[in-house]
């Protein structure tokens, strides 16, 4: 059996999750505390991947970044960056596609904290940054863990977006979900079964771990 699709899958999931963590913390904090009028608009935009077929996202991504388009051509000619049918393109599409899975837990975690925690820190003269990193984030660890794992698992489970913009290039964009589809098409049910079983076992273990850890965390919290 070829292990590269599985390794590629987990590499993609890990990189996507780490990038999203960096993006989702400031974004989630803004959404949790801002009273701006543009907030519902941004919230809607972030939630779109939840309801949109992945092929829609993949289609627009393809149109926007193909070398024949304005932006894709610019990136290709000036910076020698090819986002379509490449791993970096896959990462960017995955980040957009999994955005709600990271932003929502961070946002709801932060909004569920009593506002007095934040205000107490501000009156003490702490900056917004110190307040976020020293006071708020340490108290929403279960939410951060949930976001981390949901994003990871969701990226592992991607199919439509990857197929649309990544194609099926071995070692570059051929992730496990695509490999399974490929093997089934070629009637290699044995190989498909191996990939599927491994994916099933690993994702099951990750999710189980989270539920067990979060339960302990919550118990410790309320003791």
């Amino acid at each position: 059996m070829d292990w590269t699709p599985l390794i590629l899958t987990f590499k993609l999931a890990l990189i996507t999750t780490l990038i999203l963590l960096l993006i989702a913390i400031p974004l989630g904090a803004w959404l949790a505390f801002s009273k701006s009028k543009s907030k519902p608009f941004l919230e809607t935009l972030i939630s779109m991947p939840l309801v949109l077929p992945p092929t829609v996202l993949g289609f627009y991504f393809l149109i926007t970044f193909s070398p024949n388009s304005w932006l894709g051509g610019l990136l290709n000619d000036w910076f020698d960056i090819k986002l379509v049918f490449s791993f970096p393109g896959l990462v960017i599409a995955s980040v957009i596609y999994s955005l709600p899975f990271m932003v929502h837990p961070v946002q709801s975690g932060l909004s569920s904290l009593p506002s007095s925690l934040r205000e107490a820190s501000i009156v003490m003269g702490k900056s917004k940054r110190t307040t976020l990193f020293k006071v708020l984030l340490p108290n929403i660890k279960p939410s951060l863990l949930t976001g981390f794992v949901l994003t990871f698992a969701h990226t592992v489970g991607e199919f439509g977006v990857v197929l649309m913009i990544g194609g099926n290039i071995p070692g570059k964009t051929k992730v496990a979900s695509i490999a399974i589809y490929d093997e089934v098409e070629a009637l290699n049910y044995g190989n498909a079964n191996q990939y599927s079983l491994i994916l099933f076992a690993i994702t099951f273990t990750i999710l189980l771990l989270v539920y067990v850890v979060n339960r302990k965390e919550i118990k410790r919290w309320w003791k």
């Binding site: 925690l117 205000e119 107490a120 009156v123 003490m124 003269g125 108290n139 919290w221």
Partner: peptide
């Protein structure tokens, strides 16, 4: 003046102690 520049302390009704 910002809260930082005011020499003030505020004890909230729910105490607002940091759980972490």
């Amino acid at each position: 003046l910002s809260p930082k520049e005011r020499k003030i302390a505020y004890v909230f009704q729910d105490y607002a102690l940091f759980p972490n």
